[in-house]
């Protein structure tokens, strides 16, 4: 076990070379609805139970089912109103359970990326063949359902192994949402491929804000507005990324959705310098236009360290 994962080099925020998003925009903004399936009776991973309470966790399970039956649809219609497309963090097993949701997202030209098969199956303890099987299953399932190749990864329930990043890079994923060290993308040090970290944010993720930080709906809206204002201001120096990671079983609740809408409205009304887009489009722009510039800047500052992730 390693104390420093060496997945990326230390790269201080100040005086970085300029990033400009398409059309001279300062902030790349994306919304990440998590469309998840939690199993009724998941097998136990030795390191973590599928549910915090003994299965069946009826309230936890049915609240998430409410998200699939009602919540996603309410959120989709809200995002339609502001012309925002989603980049979906998908439990790919949901494709088999609820194809209507997938079809509705395809019809909106939303992007899909992998969030594992089920959010109740963790990566802890997987051997390489098992982890490859999950990744290949994710790619294949979305390809069959939508005709599109996924390019992004967010490990199920944020559970990883030391080889996760090398594997997804090898399978030609472009971005990982698993790392929260920055408000700008950065190349990840993998043995092969061209993988970048995509700013996703736990700090303004609705699971954290409503749950861990116990925010009221209005406070969460205020936090999102301030997050946006600050990152847009800093984007004048060099383009920043803001993501709102969402879970419909939380944000689409009838007592929360209107306060949340006020945040989307604020962003929409102040979007003249904002690229409202998807994660894959941000990744594509960064890897084609700014990958080399970033590597050179880190090198020029003398901050490049040898080795790759978990492999110093």
């Amino acid at each position: 076990m390693m104390n420093d994962p060496n997945l990326y080099d230390y790269w201080p925020y100040r005086n970085r070379p300029r990033i400009e998003w398409p059309g001279g925009k300062k902030l790349a903004f994306w919304v990440a609805p998590n469309i998840e399936y939690y199993e009724f009776d998941p097998p136990k991973n030795p390191q973590r139970p599928g549910w915090p309470k003994p299965s069946p966790d009826v309230v936890g399970y049915s609240q998430r089912d409410w998200g699939n039956r009602i919540g996603h649809w309410r959120l989709m219609e809200l995002m339609d109103k502001y012309g925002m497309r989603g980049s979906i963090s998908l439990s790919t097993g949901l494709i088999d359970h609820h194809p209507e949701i997938i079809e509705a997202c395809v019809a909106r030209d939303w992007e899909f990326f992998s969030h594992g098969i089920y959010n109740t199956r963790y990566s802890y303890g997987m051997n390489e063949a098992q982890e490859r099987a999950v990744i290949e299953d994710s790619i294949r399932s979305v390809q069959v359902a939508t005709g599109k190749r996924i390019r992004g990864y967010l490990a199920p329930a944020l559970t990883h192994t030391e080889r996760t990043f090398d594997l997804i890079a090898e399978y030609d994923f472009w971005y990982t949402c698993d790392l929260f060290q920055d408000d700008q993308p950065q190349p990840i040090k993998t043995k092969s491929g061209q993988l970048m970290s995509m700013p996703y944010s736990l700090e303004v993720n609705d699971v954290i804000t409503y749950g861990q930080l116990a925010m009221t709906p209005q406070r969460y809206a205020d936090v999102l507005k301030r997050q946006f204002d600050q990152l847009l201001e800093e984007g004048t120096r060099s383009g920043t990324v803001m993501c709102i990671p969402l879970h419909a079983y939380l944000v689409s609740q009838p007592h929360r959705i209107r306060a949340f809408e006020s945040a989307l409205a604020h962003i929409y009304q102040n979007s003249s310098d904002v690229w409202i887009t998807t994660a894959a489009e941000i990744a594509n722009h960064f890897r084609t236009s700014y990958w080399d510039q970033t590597i050179s800047d880190i090198s020029a500052r003398g901050l490049t360290r040898p080795g790759t992730g978990f492999n110093p």
């Binding site: 994962p5 997945l7 230390y10 201080p12 925020y13 973590r48 802890y124 060290q181 920055d182 736990l202």
Partner: peptide
């Protein structure tokens, strides 16, 4: 907090040293 490798907390703390501290400065 979570089982190894807890990259979630590792990177959220590292955010402070890479980005947050420069806002404070």
């Amino acid at each position: 907090v979570t089982p190894y490798p807890d990259l979630r907390h590792y990177t959220t703390r590292d955010y402070g040293n890479r980005v947050g501290v420069f806002r404070i400065l």
